[in-house]
């Protein structure tokens, strides 16, 4: 297990480097001169040249790349054109909002998806199986923004049960400590606010969880169907073991590798791709942050946002890789 982890960590280095190189290249490939963007189209050629020089934009690309890499490694993500604030400190509250929402959504997706998949496989061709799989099909094909709008219309506007927008009530805002509101409210002992935060999370997290739930359920079902047919399940039955135990302990652990892969991919997608949900529910996450930056052509912010999302994606997959080794003893020997 130790060598396996070390090997995985070493393999991470070229991936991360490649990632920064790609982000760097994309921004460079975008037509237009950053100096012109900053100074405006009417700037004199002299001013543009001076700004280029002071920004280091007249250096060869690899010099620019290495200075960019150095900045990232020292935690300097640059300055936002729009707000003139350092991006590194500005982005964290947004990131925290996204992480919190995605985390809750993934918990819902994992619990509901895996259980639905297991029961569908166990009771194959039952009413439950058919219903669950039709719902899963609807789940993967339903556009998120449509589901979000339906939720808002139903539960906020018609029934008035849940808030439709934001992380907290405007008049009863949470004092950020970590910016993870569920933790912050608990640290401050504000159970009323904790409950408020949860109420705010319900609709967006369900909207966000729909697709992962459906995908996880389908993957769990097919993986479990395969495993339940295997010889060692028959062996467990022949020992006199209970079916519930066999399914949840024996079969699930064997079926888990493909499920874990899907969970990893979906988590990465949620963390990066929640722009639609965040926009609809006014959730101040990274998605919304980047969305606004795009509207303002705030290139440093876009660049940093993409970099962070890519970084999270890589890290989630790294963790998944480590978990493979824990679940299946055969993997670390390959």
């Amino acid at each position: 297990m130790f060598y396996y982890s070390v090997k995985r960590i070493l393999m991470l280095i070229p991936v991360l480097l490649g990632m920064t190189l790609i982000v760097f290249a994309i921004i460079h490939a975008i037509p237009g001169n950053p100096a012109l963007t900053i100074l405006g189209t009417k700037a004199s050629p002299e001013a543009v040249r001076q700004l280029n020089q002071s920004l280091g934009l007249d250096n060869p690309w690899y010099v620019q790349y290495f200075s960019y890499l150095k900045d990232i490694l020292t935690g300097d993500l640059g300055t936002s054109i729009q707000t003139h604030a350092p991006i590194a400190s500005e982005i964290w509250p947004h990131l925290a909002a996204t992480i919190e929402l995605s985390f809750v959504a993934m918990i819902i997706a994992i619990v509901v998806g895996i259980n639905a998949g297991i029961i569908s496989a166990w009771k194959q061709n039952s009413v439950f199986d058919y219903t669950a799989m039709i719902l899963a099909l609807i789940g993967v094909s339903m556009p998120v923004f449509w589901l979000g709008l339906l939720e808002q219309w139903g539960f906020s506007i018609k029934l008035g049960w849940l808030p439709s927008i934001g992380r907290d009530d405007i008049r009863n805002g949470v004092d950020p400590i970590t910016n993870l509101y569920l933790i912050d409210t608990l640290l401050q002992g504000r159970l009323d606010q904790f409950w408020m935060v949860i109420r705010h999370m319900i609709l967006p997290s369900i909207a966000l969880a729909t697709i992962p739930t459906a995908i996880i359920a389908r993957m769990t079902r097919s993986s479990m169907l395969e495993v339940l047919k295997s010889d060692y399940i028959r062996t467990a039955k022949a020992k006199g073991q209970r079916m519930v135990w066999i399914v949840y302990k024996y079969a699930l652990k064997n079926a888990f590798i493909p499920i874990l892969t899907v969970i990893g991919l979906q988590t990465g997608l949620l963390l990066g791709g929640a722009i639609l949900t965040e926009t609809i529910f006014g959730w101040p996450g990274v998605g919304l942050y980047i969305y606004n930056a795009i509207q303002y052509r705030d290139y440093p912010v876009i660049q940093s946002g993409i970099l962070i999302i890519a970084f999270i994606f890589v890290m989630v997959n790294f963790i998944v890789d480590l978990l493979y080794g824990l679940i299946d003893p055969r993997i670390k020997y390959k």
């Binding site: 010889d231 022949a238 006199g240 209970r242 679940i327």
Partner: peptide, 25 residues
Amino acid sequence: KMRKLRGNEIAMIFQEPMTSLNPVF
């Protein structure tokens, strides 16, 4: 009732020893 018999009173072994044991336990 069968669960109490299986493994306890009537046990069984199978053809494929390579796949009859659970690989992850």
